[in-house]
Computed example of a mutant assay.
Amino acid sequence: MAITDKIYLKNHRQIVSQLDVNIPKGAFKGATMEVLYSGEGLTNVDDATRERLLDFAQDFLDCDDPDDIYTGYPERQFVRYLLDLRAQGLGPDAIVDVMSDDYMVYAYPGDVLSFLDQSIRRLEAVESLAAVEGSDEMERRAREARQALSG
Rank of each mutant, 00 (worst) to 15 (best):
M1A: 14
I3Q: 08
D5W: 08
D5I: 00
Y8R: 10
K10D: 14
N11H: 15
N11W: 13
H12P: 00
H12G: 05
Q14W: 01
I15V: 13
I15F: 02
I15A: 04
L19Y: 02
D20F: 07
D20T: 12
D20G: 13
D20I: 06
D20L: 06
D20H: 12
N22I: 11
P24I: 11
K25W: 02
K25Q: 11
G26A: 15
A27N: 10
A27D: 10
F28S: 06
K29I: 01
A31H: 09
A31S: 08
T32Y: 07
T32K: 00
M33F: 04
M33G: 14
L36D: 02
Y37R: 04
S38P: 01
G39C: 00
G41H: 01
L42S: 02
L42F: 05
T43K: 15
N44V: 03
N44K: 15
V45I: 10
V45Y: 03
V45F: 05
A48P: 00
A48N: 11
T49N: 07
R50E: 12
E51T: 10
E51D: 11
E51S: 10
R52Y: 02
L53G: 01
L53I: 00
L54P: 00
L54R: 13
D55R: 15
D55Y: 09
F56G: 04
Q58V: 11
Q58L: 08
F60D: 03
L61N: 12
L61G: 14
L61P: 02
D62M: 02
C63N: 04
D64R: 12
P66M: 05
P66N: 09
D67N: 11
D68W: 01
I69R: 14
Y70M: 09
T71W: 06
G72K: 09
E75L: 08
Q77G: 08
Q77E: 11
Q77C: 08
F78C: 05
V79Q: 12
R80K: 13
R80D: 13
R80H: 09
Y81V: 06
Y81N: 04
L83T: 15
L83P: 08
D84V: 05
D84M: 09
D84C: 06
L85N: 01
R86C: 08
Q88I: 00
Q88E: 15
G89T: 03
L90P: 01
G91C: 06
P92I: 02
I95G: 04
V96F: 03
V98S: 09
M99N: 07
S100C: 15
M104V: 02
V105C: 08
V105L: 07
Y106T: 13
Y108E: 12
D111P: 00
D111G: 07
V112E: 05
S114F: 05
L116Q: 06
L116T: 08
D117G: 00
D117H: 06
Q118T: 07
Q118F: 04
R121A: 15
R121F: 09
R121P: 01
R122Q: 12
L123G: 05
E124N: 10
A125T: 13
A125G: 01
E127V: 06
E127T: 04
A130Q: 07
A130V: 07
A131I: 05
V132S: 10
E133Q: 15
G134H: 02
D136G: 15
E137N: 08
E137G: 04
M138C: 06
M138P: 01
R140L: 08
R140W: 06
R141G: 07
R141E: 15
A142M: 07
A142G: 09
R143H: 10
R143M: 07
R143G: 02
R146H: 11
R146W: 03
G151W: 03
